[in-house]
Amino acid sequence: MDEKQPKRGGEPRRITDLGTLKALGHPLRLRVYGTLRVSGPSTASQLASQVDEAVSLVSYHLRKLAEHGLIEEADVQSEDARERWWQAAQDNLSFRHEDFKDTPEGAATHAAVVRSLIAYRREQYETYLAQQEAWGAEWRIAADQSDFLARLNPAELKRLNAEIHALVKTYEEQGKAAEAAGDTEGRENVAVHLASFPFRL
């Protein structure tokens, strides 16, 4: 594995080796990694509280994620210098079927990790549905759950995805810039999930 991993805030990292994909694919590691992306630097004890697991178990999975450059040590955020702080090593990860299709193990691992991600995203949405009354009318009106049907060829689908990604990235950067300028009122974490795929009846 390349020793020079992109740092948080840099270019997205594309996972192409099976070991790293397996390391990420464990359901608890997905939750820990996702929590670090959202919450920022955290200790094992803080993460254990957020994912409702034992500190020793979370520490073990943090080490596994770190071995593959998925997370990295962060600057100490408290007065206790003995505490070990962790952060996601990059803002975005990607992995594609094409990089793992040549072996049965690779194809099976890729499919399993994608299914784990779908389950994790479904859990996020189910949590919102269970709590939506508490969010208030403004957030309920702003939130969306839609699906679309288009007749496209592969090139058009690829271009559509690229344009959607670029648009979401624009809003991500605008939000970061606004918060850096002190405009924090009313801002919350917002999950945008996209799945686009061909199908036949």
Results as ranks from 00 to 15, higher is better:
residue 70 L to M: 07
residue 51 V to L: 05
residue 104 P to N: 02
residue 53 E to D: 15
residue 66 A to I: 06
residue 144 D to H: 12
residue 141 I to M: 08
residue 158 K to H: 05
residue 162 A to H: 11
residue 89 A to K: 06
residue 91 D to N: 11
residue 159 R to S: 06
residue 79 E to I: 09
residue 72 E to C: 12
residue 57 L to Q: 14
residue 153 N to H: 05
residue 165 H to N: 06
residue 144 D to C: 02
residue 138 E to A: 14
residue 102 D to F: 04
residue 66 A to F: 00
residue 55 V to S: 11
residue 46 Q to P: 02
residue 123 E to D: 12
residue 43 T to H: 07
residue 113 V to K: 04
residue 135 W to R: 07
residue 68 H to T: 05
residue 160 L to R: 14
residue 84 R to M: 09
residue 68 H to I: 04
residue 125 Y to D: 10
residue 108 A to W: 02
residue 53 E to I: 03
residue 133 E to G: 05
residue 95 F to G: 03
residue 115 R to L: 08
residue 87 Q to C: 10
residue 139 W to L: 10
residue 138 E to W: 00
residue 146 S to K: 04
residue 129 L to C: 04
residue 147 D to P: 00
residue 146 S to N: 07
residue 122 R to M: 13
residue 90 Q to F: 03
residue 62 L to W: 10
residue 120 Y to C: 04
residue 121 R to T: 06
residue 132 Q to V: 14
residue 35 T to C: 11
residue 107 A to P: 00
residue 124 Q to P: 01
residue 148 F to A: 02
residue 96 R to Y: 08
residue 67 E to T: 08
residue 89 A to M: 06
residue 123 E to I: 06
residue 136 G to M: 08
residue 106 G to V: 03
residue 142 A to V: 06
residue 77 Q to D: 06
residue 74 A to S: 14
residue 94 S to Y: 03
residue 69 G to D: 07
residue 151 R to G: 00
residue 44 A to G: 11
residue 68 H to D: 05
residue 91 D to R: 09
residue 69 G to F: 02
residue 100 F to G: 01
residue 101 K to N: 12
residue 135 W to I: 04
residue 35 T to S: 13
residue 132 Q to D: 09
residue 58 V to S: 03
residue 109 T to C: 13
residue 140 R to S: 05
residue 135 W to P: 00
residue 151 R to D: 09
residue 119 A to H: 07
residue 156 E to T: 11
residue 155 A to V: 07
residue 145 Q to D: 15
residue 126 E to Y: 01
residue 129 L to W: 02
residue 134 A to R: 15
residue 95 F to E: 01
residue 82 R to P: 00
residue 37 R to I: 13
residue 152 L to N: 09
residue 91 D to L: 04
residue 70 L to N: 03
